[in-house]
Amino acid sequence: MKVLDFSIPSSVEGWVAIDDRVMGGMSSSRLRFHPDGHAVFEGYVSTANGGGFASVRHPALRLGIQGTEGYRLHVRGDGKRFKLNLRMEDGLDGVNYQAGFLPPAGHWVEILLTISTFSPRYRGRLVPNAPSLRPEKVCQVGWMVADGQAGAFQLDIRAVTAVGQP
């Protein structure tokens, strides 16, 4: 079941940049529509002023039902490592479930992220006693680039499909 489809311009509405500027950094990002029919997560990561991450998030998206075993991403990267972030609570702050992936530069690929690959984090730190990720409770979705990968970045996204549903 396709849960995010970026083939039309309105698919990028409602996404908000949440970059390291919230803590004094200088990185910036955005999610925009490309006329070829996909979204583009792009920007610049700076490690100045203690920064080092850029992200966008949609505060009101569902991403699965009970029985979802993972997500298939249809993406094209630039050689950098990205993260898919999922949240089971409303609000700006809280536990964020992250799964990293490294799409090859310049080629469209499908990448499967199983539920078990998502780790609970709070402000970048592992939360060992957090509840397990429950896809039916996901209410916020985001994309991130971090981990000291300074410089320009671009991730093209066609779709995210929930897999393993009954």
Rank of each mutant, 00 (worst) to 15 (best):
M1P: 15
M1A: 14
V3D: 05
I8D: 14
S11H: 06
S11A: 15
S11R: 03
E13R: 12
G14Y: 02
W15Y: 08
V16R: 14
A17F: 04
R21A: 14
V22P: 11
G24T: 08
G25W: 05
M26F: 10
S27Q: 03
S29R: 04
L31N: 08
L31V: 11
L31F: 04
F33I: 01
F33G: 02
H34M: 10
H34L: 10
A39M: 03
A39N: 09
V40E: 13
F41I: 01
F41A: 00
E42N: 03
E42M: 05
G43F: 05
G43M: 03
G43P: 10
Y44K: 13
Y44P: 00
Y44Q: 13
S46I: 08
N49Y: 09
G51P: 05
G52L: 06
G52E: 05
F53N: 08
F53A: 10
F53W: 09
F53G: 11
A54R: 04
A54L: 05
H58I: 09
H58R: 07
A60L: 08
R62K: 15
L63K: 07
L63A: 15
G64P: 09
G67K: 11
G67L: 08
E69A: 15
G70P: 05
G70W: 01
Y71F: 12
Y71K: 04
Y71S: 04
R72H: 02
L73I: 00
L73N: 00
L73W: 00
L73A: 00
H74P: 11
R76P: 01
G77C: 01
G77P: 05
G79I: 02
G79E: 04
G79Y: 05
R81I: 13
R81M: 12
F82P: 02
F82H: 01
L84S: 04
L84W: 04
N85T: 07
N85Q: 12
L86F: 03
G91F: 07
G91K: 04
N96P: 00
Y97G: 04
F101A: 09
F101S: 07
F101C: 01
P103M: 02
P104R: 13
T114D: 14
T114Q: 14
I115M: 09
I115G: 06
S116I: 03
T117W: 02
F118V: 02
S119F: 09
R121P: 02
R121D: 03
Y122R: 10
R123C: 05
R125F: 10
L126V: 12
L126D: 09
P128D: 12
A130R: 02
E136V: 06
E136K: 12
V138R: 04
C139H: 08
C139M: 11
Q140K: 09
V145L: 08
D147E: 13
G148M: 06
F153Q: 05
D156R: 12
D156C: 12
R158M: 07
R158W: 07
T161M: 10
V163L: 13
V163G: 03
V163Y: 01
V163T: 11
G164H: 02
Q165C: 10
P166M: 08
P166F: 01
